[in-house]
Design a protein around this nucleic acid. Sequence first.
DNA 1: CTGAAAGCGCTTACAG
DNA 2: CTGAAAGCGCTTACAG
Lengths: 348, 348
Amino acid sequence: MASIKDVAAEAGVSVATVSRVLNGHPSVSAAARARVLGAVEALGYRPNAVARSLRTDQTRTLGLVISDVLNPYFTELARSVEEEARALGYSVIIGNADERPDLQDHHVTTLLDRRIDGLLVSPTDGGSPRMLEAARAGTPMVFVDRWIPGVDVPVVRSDGRAAVRDLVAHLHGLGHRRLAIIAGPAATTTGRERVDAFREALGAHGLPLPDAYIGQGDFQADSGRRVTEGFLDLPEPPEVVFAADNLMALGALDAVRARGLRVPRDIALAAFDDIRWFVHTDPPVTAIAQPTGELGRAAVRALVDRIEGRGGASVTLPARLVVRRSCGEPPASSPQSPSPSPVRRSTT
Amino acid sequence: MASIKDVAAEAGVSVATVSRVLNGHPSVSAAARARVLGAVEALGYRPNAVARSLRTDQTRTLGLVISDVLNPYFTELARSVEEEARALGYSVIIGNADERPDLQDHHVTTLLDRRIDGLLVSPTDGGSPRMLEAARAGTPMVFVDRWIPGVDVPVVRSDGRAAVRDLVAHLHGLGHRRLAIIAGPAATTTGRERVDAFREALGAHGLPLPDAYIGQGDFQADSGRRVTEGFLDLPEPPEVVFAADNLMALGALDAVRARGLRVPRDIALAAFDDIRWFVHTDPPVTAIAQPTGELGRAAVRALVDRIEGRGGASVTLPARLVVRRSCGEPPASSPQSPSPSPVRRSTT
DNA sequence: CTGAAAGCGCTTACAG
DNA sequence: CTGAAAGCGCTTACAG
């Protein structure tokens, strides 16, 4: 592969001059510039990004460590992150932690070894030593979706509290009283917060959240299935299952179907995270939708602001309830909005 | 960040010695090794992968350019690619082309500039100049899923021909005679092949595939919706729509639902690519399943073989039909298997 | 406007 | 077993 030396030789100038025209430095004569450009074209030369990075100490690359690529929520997040990064002149390298702290650590290490300019992470746990160390060492960093309390890093996330209240009001309005949740890992903020919000919302209606109705999942499908089976085996099974993410809702559907039961007739289902397939499931699934694309873009802007020394602040965006049919049909006469906050009723 | 010099100073040895222990070179005294390891630990030193790559001319990194991250098929492919690569000591950088040739080109260029050791690509089109040039220049490369005829690069893909025959036999057995297809872009091999296989299978049953029943999609959801609307507007709409990928099937479901029609009562639906949600859609969708994970792993092995000078051959794996209910219920008395080749009937 | 030179952080023949 | 030195491909003060 042609190097800058080859270009210089071909153009009859020094490598310094080649470098200058490549970087748009103003003090180059028009003649030299033309000769260099000609040589670049003739040789099909492309600058070696590795050498450039070593010299300039910047890679124009962002690392993104997500919890699970198979989760459409994170896949959409990754897409918007890449899009915004590209618009700002950065590439992104994605690491998939698969909800495993050890894999998360592997990716953080690899990314740091590659000297990425900044790190976007949605932590799978309470924070590996390596990640905390990176944060302390001053690697520009921002948390997205999930975060680690006590670490001084901006957080870009969505707040589902109001939407969860809307959901519980909706469920209560439908006559449901025994509500259960498939929780995410307690080591994650979203794992804890969604349970807290749910419990709080239930409390407002005078409803309890007994321990038996809190199933411990890991945000992946199999755990949703397993927890749902446990709920169904209870002497008094819940009337509604709220899955804290879309994959666990998928697992819940698997479990219900495997028993020959029907949603919502035998048990109602709602999910955190809205995905396109929820419109076409049997029945369509009531869900809480996050402004995923906007989160990804905001996270990149915050990170790039940090990298380029412009601060970079936390952002919290609201989630919203999308009512479909998986929790039962509302009485025809009742109003749609269970609460003052805006609730979109899906047209499907 | 500590460099190799700092470690050398701390350990009281030369940087050469540090490098040797870091790389497991045998000729280092036990004492020196211990001092170096101690210094590494004390300083929290991590080798700079950028510098190492520049020096060794290898990055231990694979580039993967996929057509669309939002497509669960590619997301699963990407996951298995990363997994296998990691097992073999490589990282992978994913570029999402979003079915756009210009974006594909952007990623190929970026990846090449980073001097990745090898390139895995599922081309969005007939091949950009830059990609063809890379192939000709000898960059280790393998095509996965889609490929470009006439380019001397191994291809790892699945052959859906037999499964499409099984599908058509299934449809024919159900009494369907007017079958339509939502095709992928003609610039892609999978776009063309799936239509060809479909036409050939129809021919075996004496059925035509009129132009009006070939809708041009782009493998993304909106095109599936648009094409399906066109089918429904025909004076004689098809009885079955076969979507050449899962996203276009999603779009087809959107279109059918928007008209207040039902699958399979008003129109039947089948899809290429099986995804977990198809079990829970209304109705469950009959699909052709690819051995996606195996494809990803085989592609990585072929690429690494090329990189390490061990050849690297093409691999073709069979796809298989998974019958569900979206094409209608079979008469209770008829046998399940429409053909001699093995057909899995889903338990759901 | 231009070039010679230093240096980014490594690895690896070469000499001892 | 160990170190001094060259060199990977760039960028960028410095001097002219």
